[in-house]
Each structure stands twice: as structure tokens, then as C-alpha cells.
């Protein structure tokens, strides 16, 4: 299994990375940046499809919640209604999963290739010899120079610069795609995830080869750019607060805004009015701040 993985996935990526280093005058840092950009561009259609599917699914959330509430006791009917909803909206519910599954092995291969190509120790250099093609461009580039800007790519960045860049870009990217949850418990969980992951990767950067951290930064920046242009803006990065759960369900049942009931108390009316404004703003902006 490992051999198949190495032959089909790892070795083509690894050798391309090394050959690219040779083409780029021996700069492995530049090769990491270029290959990350190339791979992300190659996967661009998939990324767009994933983003659009996710966006479409999020748009349907209020309706989904409504159906779930309505048919909570009848699972069969619930399934039927959900399928009907997806069909009407023209959405394949698994549409956002396939692109993710296809991209995963490529990311893993890129990650492994960077680690392999750096060959920080004599053992890893020896191990590298078993994965190389007999291309002249590969042979001429080995062993790779680990110097790039202020970094030694096979060692962690002693400054905090790369750690801040990794954590910062990851936080921005996560914030752009994570909708503010209505449920307070869910909201605190979401906040924890969007804070913890960048923090964790920032800490990893202090311990891992900076070549890998460079890949994380570039990958995150490209992700942000794609997200910005595909979704048309900064998305949820500019939506700091979440709408209140019960009112949201009432206020955005479909595409048109509901009419406020005159029989409600002043306090409730004010609350609804506030929510309506939010919903209206959200509608104007679009889910991603268009």
C-alpha cells in the first residue's frame, strides 16, 4: 500500500518539487511557493465547486432547520422533504465532500514531499535516494539548499514572524468561511475552533521546519484569495455577531422577509425589528458580504 502511494502520488510531487528547485536557480523556498500555487490553481475548479456547494448548503440552512423541526418525529417524511428541498434548489448534498476528498491526498503528498526533500539528517538524505527519478534536473539539485530569505528551511524559524503569519492567515481563512452559530453553545464551540486551530499551527511553526511553515502560509494566503474572489468578499470575517436563534428561524423562512405582527409587545417588537434589520443587512450583503 505504501509502495503504491509512493509511486503514484508522493514521488511525482517530490520529483517535481526538486526539479522545480533546479529550474528556479536552486531556491527551494521559491519552489515551495511556486508548487503550492500551481497545485492550488490545478485544484481551483474543485475548490470553487466546494466553496459554492458549501455556500449553497448554508443558504438552505434556515429551511433545513424548519423541516427538521416540522418532521422531527417522522424520519421517513423528513428524508423525503429534505431530498425534495435539495432537488428544488439543484444541490447535490455530497457535492461539497468530493472535492475535499480528492484534494486531501494531494495535500498530504505535498506535505510529505517537503519533509522528504529537506533531508535534514544523513538518514533522511539516504532515504530520499530511494524516491528520486533519474532526471538530470533532480540529480543536479540534490542536496537542496535550505537557505531562503532569513530562514533555514530545515529548521524552525527562531523568530516569531513565520508563526504569526501561519496563525494569522489561518485565522483569517477560517473566519471567512465559518458562519456565526445561532446556538450559544455551538457559537462558543465555533469560536474555540477558529481560535485554537490557528494557535495550534502557530505553535507547531515554532517546532517544525520552516519550509513546511512556508507552505502553510502560502497555502493559507491562496485560500484567502480564492475565498475572497469566489465568494465576493471577506465573508463572515466582517460579521462579528450571530443572529438570535428563535427569531432567525421566524425571520428568514424563505427568500422574502416576514411581516411584523402588530399584536406583539413593544419589547418583542423592538427585538424583532433589530433582528429584521440584521437579516435585511445580511440579505443585502449576501452571505459572504457581497
Amino acid at each position: 500500500m505504501a509502495d503504491i502511494w509512493n509511486t503514484i502520488i508522493l514521488e511525482p510531487v517530490l520529483n517535481s518539487l526538486i526539479a522545480l528547485t533546479n529550474v528556479l536557480g536552486g531556491s527551494f523556498g521559491l519552489a515551495i511557493i511556486v508548487l503550492t500555487v500551481v497545485v492550488r490553481l490545478a485544484l481551483f475548479p474543485l475548490t470553487v465547486r466546494q466553496t459554492q456547494s458549501t455556500k449553497a448548503m448554508q443558504t438552505l440552512q434556515p429551511k433545513i432547520q424548519e423541516i427538521q423541526k416540522k418532521y422531527a418525529k417522522d424520519q421517513q417524511k423528513l428524508q423525503q422533504e429534505m431530498m425534495k428541498l435539495y432537488k428544488e434548489a439543484g444541490i447535490n448534498p455530497l457535492g461539497c465532500l468530493w472535492p475535499m476528498l480528492i484534494q486531501l491526498p494531494i495535500w498530504i503528498a505535498l506535505y510529505q514531499s517537503i519533509m522528504q526533500a529537506l533531508a535534514a539528517t544523513p538518514e533522511s538524505l539516504l532515504s530520499l535516494s530511494q524516491h528520486l527519478y533519474s532526471w538530470a534536473a533532480v540529480g543536479h539539485a540534490i542536496p537542496l539548499s535550505d537557505k531562503f530569505l532569513w530562514l533555514n528551511l530545515s529548521r524552525p524559524d527562531p523568530n516569531l514572524i513565520l508563526a504569526i503569519l501561519v496563525g494569522g492567515t489561518m485565522w483569517v481563512q477560517q473566519k471567512m468561511v465559518t458562519p456565526p452559530a445561532a446556538d450559544p453553545r455551538q457559537r462558543s464551540m465555533t469560536n474555540l475552533t477558529t481560535t485554537m486551530m490557528p494557535l495550534m499551527f502557530g505553535l507547531f511553526t515554532l517546532s517544525f521546519p520552516s519550509g513546511l511553515a512556508l507552505y502553510w502560509v502560502v497555502s493559507n494566503i491562496i485560500g484567502i484569495v480564492i475565498q475572497y474572489f469566489v465568494s465576493g468578499g471577506w465573508g463572515y470575517l466582517r460579521t462579528p455577531t450571530a443572529p438570535k436563534p428563535p427569531t432567525v428561524e421566524k425571520v428568514i423562512p424563505a427568500q422574502k422577509a416576514p411581516v411584523v405582527q402588530p399584536s406583539k409587545t413593544l419589547q418583542k417588537a423592538a427585538e424583532e425589528s433589530k433582528t429584521l434589520k440584521k437579516a435585511s443587512d445580511e440579505k443585502k450583503r449576501g452571505l459572504f458580504g457581497r
Partner: peptide
């Protein structure tokens, strides 16, 4: 899927840690 992705990332981190050690 998220769990699998998280596990893969964690395993990679562990593997990559074990990789560059020297004997």
C-alpha cells in the same frame, strides 16, 4: 471527515517528528 482529516494531520505531525531524528 473532519475527524479523519484531523487524525491525518496529527499523524503527519507525529510521523514528521519521528522522521528527522538521527541515529
Amino acid at each position: 471527515l473532519s475527524l479523519i482529516a484531523a487524525l491525518i494531520v496529527l499523524s503527519l505531525l507525529v510521523v514528521s517528528c519521528a522522521g528527522p531524528t538521527f541515529q
